[in-house]
């Protein structure tokens, strides 16, 4: 996309982007600390799809309390913090058909693959797991193809 603004506009755009990267890195470090805490204290891998998936398909009944507690924390803190720092908007597409299709694919895919961005991505790559690295490569490829088809070819979403 071409930036049609003048020099000043472009400069402020660059500045904005740099803050985004810094916030991304700081947020990332906090995510990594969350995973480290869960591993060293509870001896468990912090995978969002596995923690929720084990509850909904019953495979995680043995430690349901731990799973529910994790999810409670995951929901509660953003509820307070997101509005305070002006992040309480997901900018999700308004097309509910797309939302349903996407949700189904994410639920199915993560449970067939046994992990998502947190489990296979953060926790897998950080221990150089071949499965984590492979999964990450394929969900990025799938995501890239999806964006190309729906944004650029069909022009939807």
């Amino acid at each position: 996309m071409q930036n049609e603004g003048d020099g000043a506009l472009r400069a402020s755009g660059v500045e904005f982007m740099q803050t985004d990267w810094i916030m991304g890195a700081i947020g990332g470090l906090i995510i990594g600390c969350a995973g480290a805490l869960f591993l060293l204290m509870n001896g468990r891998i912090m995978g969002a799809s596995g923690i929720l998936g084990g509850l909904v398909d019953g495979s995680g009944r043995a430690n349901a309390g731990e799973r529910l507690s994790f999810i409670a924390g995951l929901v509660a803190l953003p509820m307070i913090v997101a509005p305070l720092i002006g992040r309480a908007d997901t900018h999700l597409t308004g097309s509910l058909g797309v939302v349903v299709a996407a949700g189904l694919l994410v639920g199915l895919g993560t449970r067939i693959a046994g992990g998502c961005t947190s489990g296979h991505g953060v926790c897998g790559i950080s221990r150089l797991s071949v499965r984590g690295l492979t999964a990450t490569a394929f969900y990025i490829i799938g995501g890239g193809i999806s964006v190309v088809i729906f944004r650029h070819v069909l022009g939807a979403v």
Binding site: T90, I112, F138, Y139, G142, S146
Partner: peptide, 16 residues
């Protein structure tokens, strides 16, 4: 599974 997950992820921009 990862490919399907990625397709949905790219569609809506949300992961679990």
């Amino acid at each position: 599974g990862s490919f399907l997950f990625g397709a949905g992820w790219g569609l809506a921009g949300l992961c679990p």
